[in-house]
Amino acid sequence: MGFKLLSKLLVYLTASIMAIASPLAFSVDSSGEYPTVSEIPVGEVRLYQIADGVWSHIATQSFDGAVYPSNGLIVRDGDELLLIDTAWGAKNTAALLAEIEKQIGLPVTRAVSTHFHDDRVGGVDVLRAAGVATYASPSTRRLAEVEGNEIPTHSLEGLSSSGDAVRFGPVELFYPGAAHSTDNLIVYVPSASVLYGGCAIYELSRTSAGNVADADLAEWPTSIERIQQHYPEAQFVIPGHGLPGGLDLLKHTTNVVKAHTNRSVVE
């Protein structure tokens, strides 16, 4: 069995187990497998329904001669939608809004960016022009300005110390501490036991640490421990890039980060 097929099978099995364990909360999309990078042309966006009122959005972007996937989250909030992270750029984010209108038909009224990198804030200006209120932590807003990236308009308070959590509509926002970046936030959907790890969490097929220019490698494993301790009931975990899975993604990420750190020390 090929690795790609095995990865998709694991996603399907995880979703099936969740649907059985929580039949009222989960209505997993039966329309197909989780979209992969090879299936999404740059400039297009796919939506994948995880649970009743919960979707991931998947886009792709060219970077350094390669094409990478990027995940975000959409959560229903009454007759409105909360968006977590842009679709990595203005063109993708405009396509995301169009796809949401086509498939869901509810307005996106608020959006949260989970850290300051372009795959999370690139497209904020498109959201703002569409009347979406954009939010991020003060740290993310400051770092985005320093980096020359787009800056969300509103500040999220109460997320300055490791372990801080605040309720934001249908989700809980959690600051686990520094990891992929010093400002990275985690998003949890309690009604569906869905954990969105953003770039602080890796997919299972990833074996290298990737972009760690703004990471705190020493603190990252401790931050992941905080996530595990705060959300032990999480059933569906979405990484910032690639295929979702279960809580095993947290341990896998820790292993990859520690291996990278150990290699760096040896070198």
Rank of each mutant, 00 (worst) to 15 (best):
E99V: 14
E267Q: 12
T109K: 14
L159T: 03
A215D: 04
L10Y: 15
A66I: 15
S139H: 11
A98E: 12
V126L: 09
I58D: 03
Y48F: 13
R167I: 14
R167S: 11
P107M: 09
R141D: 02
P152H: 04
A218Q: 14
Y135S: 03
M1Q: 06
Y12D: 14
G169C: 06
T153W: 09
L247D: 08
E80G: 09
Y12C: 11
V266Q: 13
P138F: 08
S160V: 12
G158Q: 09
A95R: 11
P41W: 07
S181H: 01
T114V: 00
V54R: 03
V266G: 14
R110A: 14
I186Y: 00
K91I: 14
A90R: 10
E147R: 14
S155T: 14
L6F: 09
V108D: 01
W55L: 03
E150K: 06
S38E: 10
S16I: 13
G242C: 06
N184Y: 03
A98R: 14
A87M: 00
V37K: 13
A129F: 08
S62Q: 08
A178C: 04
A234S: 09
E39V: 12
P35M: 09
E99I: 12
I40P: 15
E101I: 07
L185V: 10
H260Q: 11
L96P: 03
D183T: 00
S70V: 03
E39A: 13
V265S: 12
E157R: 11
R141M: 13
A19I: 15
I151P: 06
H115I: 00
E101A: 14
L47N: 04
K91V: 15
V45L: 04
S181P: 03
S181N: 00
S181A: 06
V132D: 03
G32M: 07
D85V: 00
A130Q: 13
V265L: 12
A179E: 04
A87Y: 00
T261V: 14
E99M: 13
R142V: 13
T60V: 15
R46V: 10
E101S: 13
A15P: 14
P244F: 07
K102T: 11
V146I: 13
G65C: 04
V112S: 03
V146P: 07
S223C: 03
K91G: 13
L250R: 03
L81C: 03
S7M: 09
L185H: 02
Y188W: 14
L24E: 12
D64G: 15
E172V: 04
G43C: 04
L9V: 14
T109L: 10
R206C: 07
K8Q: 09
W55D: 03
S205G: 10
H230M: 14
Y188M: 01
D118N: 11
G2I: 07
F3V: 12
L81D: 00
A94Q: 13
R226A: 08
D77F: 06
Q103M: 14
S139Q: 12
T253N: 04
A129E: 12
A215H: 04
K91Y: 10
G210K: 05
I40M: 15
T86L: 00
S264G: 12
A25V: 12
N149K: 15
L156R: 04
D183H: 03
T86N: 00
P244D: 00
H57P: 02
N149Q: 13
D214N: 08
A234P: 08
W88K: 00
P221I: 10
W220N: 00
T207M: 13
L204I: 14
L83M: 10
A130H: 12
L82G: 01
L5R: 14
V187W: 01
D214R: 03
E157T: 12
A144I: 07
G197H: 00
T253C: 05
L159P: 07
D125E: 13
L127S: 01
Q228A: 12
V212G: 04
K251N: 11
L9P: 13
C199D: 02
T60S: 13
E225A: 13
A19M: 15
F168V: 05
I100G: 01
T207Y: 10
R141I: 10
E267F: 10
L5G: 08
V75I: 08
H180V: 01
P69M: 15
V75G: 02
P41N: 11
A15H: 12
Y48Q: 15
R46F: 07
K258H: 12
G242N: 04
L6C: 15
H115F: 00
F236M: 09
D125L: 07
S31T: 11
T261H: 14
I20M: 12
R141T: 06
D248L: 09
I151L: 08
N262M: 12
L47H: 04
L156T: 04
A144N: 05
H154S: 10
I104L: 07
V265Q: 13
I74H: 02
H115R: 02
V126I: 08
S31F: 07
R142I: 13
V187N: 03
A165W: 13
L204K: 14
H57F: 04
G72T: 03
P239F: 03
L127A: 04
P35V: 09
S38K: 07
T134L: 03
L217P: 07
G158M: 07
F3L: 08
L159V: 11
L195W: 01
I227W: 02
H117L: 00
D79F: 09
S70G: 03
E219F: 06
D29G: 10
Y175R: 01
T253R: 02
S22P: 14
V108E: 02
L13M: 12
A90Y: 08
L243H: 15
L13C: 15
G148E: 09
A111G: 09
F26P: 10
V75E: 03
L9F: 10
D77A: 07
A136V: 04
R142C: 06
V194F: 01
S16N: 06
V108C: 00
G89T: 04
T182P: 13
E203T: 06
F168H: 00
L249K: 02
T134N: 02
E233V: 13
K4E: 08
S223W: 01
F26W: 15
L195Y: 00
G2H: 15
A178P: 13
S7H: 11
L73T: 01
S155P: 13
T253A: 04
A130Y: 13
R206T: 15
S181M: 01
L24A: 10
F26S: 13
Q103L: 14
I227G: 03
S30A: 14
P176D: 01
E101G: 12
S27N: 09
P221M: 08
I17C: 12
E150M: 02
T60R: 07
K4R: 06
F3A: 07
R76S: 13
S161I: 12
S208H: 11
P41L: 09
E33Y: 08
S56N: 15
L143H: 08
T109E: 07
V108Q: 00
E39K: 12
P23H: 14
Q49R: 13
G169Y: 06
L13V: 15
A213P: 09
S205F: 10
S27W: 10
P232R: 10
D216N: 12
A94H: 11
A21W: 10
L247N: 14
S70E: 03
I100C: 00
R110P: 06
K258E: 14
Y34G: 09
Y48N: 15
F168Y: 06
